[in-house]
Design a protein around this nucleic acid. Sequence first.
DNA 1: CCATTTTCGGACTAATTAGTCTAGAATGTC
DNA 2: GACATTCTAGACTAATTAGTCCGAAAATGG
Lengths: 194, 194
Amino acid sequence: MARSKEFDMNLVLHKAMEVFGHYGYEGTSLPILLEGLGIARQSLYDTYGTKKDLFIKAVKHYVNEKSSAVVVYLEKSESVKEAIHAIFREIVFVLQDEDRRKECFILYSAIDQVPHEPEIAALFEEDRNRLERAFYEALVRAKHNQELSTDQDLQALARYLYHSRYTLTQVAKLTNDPKVLEEITTVTLSMLEA
Amino acid sequence: MARSKEFDMNLVLHKAMEVFGHYGYEGTSLPILLEGLGIARQSLYDTYGTKKDLFIKAVKHYVNEKSSAVVVYLEKSESVKEAIHAIFREIVFVLQDEDRRKECFILYSAIDQVPHEPEIAALFEEDRNRLERAFYEALVRAKHNQELSTDQDLQALARYLYHSRYTLTQVAKLTNDPKVLEEITTVTLSMLEA
DNA sequence: CCATTTTCGGACTAATTAGTCTAGAATGTC
DNA sequence: GACATTCTAGACTAATTAGTCCGAAAATGG
């Protein structure tokens, strides 16, 4: 028999998120990428394919992981409002952590590639459909429960929530003040109290 | 005497916004940039300096131009609410126009460079201070006029408005549907009716 | 110990990068 | 028409780019 694979796929993908998030897709050179991943050049090509392949893998992993958690929250929670608050609390919390925030910025780099990489564009279209539906259904449920009393268009509100979550990483790029993220989130979610 | 300058600085800067906005700063190669600008290589270096110099000039021009208009709106308008609506209507309108939207995306590329280019970071810090103050003072005025009846923290609301305007370009990157921008803006500004 | 596979490191290529230089054509003022 | 300046086009450099190839070291299970 032979030597067994020793790369932890998950770990490497998370490191890739950090590197791509920090330098952007085009801004990440092979040497920088390899140093960030801690593996040799040949190992990258053997195991993950080209730089673009790895980028797409990392983006898919990030988006799917986060979005799945959001869907679970929305579907399982007793209180829809509390679920939504928890979802935003989570992303704000991560963005406030000096270390954990790093990988979030791959989202920004990924959106940057939407016009140039059809696979990335398709990924976000699917993600948007999935999450907008999840938000919408949760909002409908909350309305029926009388948990929600707003008379807003729930479809529009769902879209608003979907994009608001993602735009927090842009806000985080513009300021390091953790308070700002909280303030903005507070205002954003006050929408649910109308 | 001699031949006179023939480049229209404004025109070239706007073309630069479109190119950098489309390809991103790192994604824009010299050949692509020159073709987009419609000038020769040497003319670029003679007139605008390096690629980075031109990028920074274009970003500054874009941000200052747009933000100055916002400040004017906020200071001169009779109705603060109407001014804010007009400000958002304007950006949504531009983002809906197939041609005019192109240059808006330099904002996205610029924010991408905030962690790497101190001059860009300083520009946004100044811009944020200026606009948050302008929004805040307008909101205070509206509150005194009884035009605004919300009991939100006006400082937080000002920050929210500042970032909401900028995040619209991220939304525009994710979808071409012009209706989405309107919907999201409607929800965003419904905040003022609380 | 052996066979197999993984990993590594460095050499290598071909293309592309930003930026400089040069020579000449175009343009405007006197 | 003479002169100063701008603009262009292309050659050129030195560095960097992504990706391939090769040989040896390391590790694993039989």
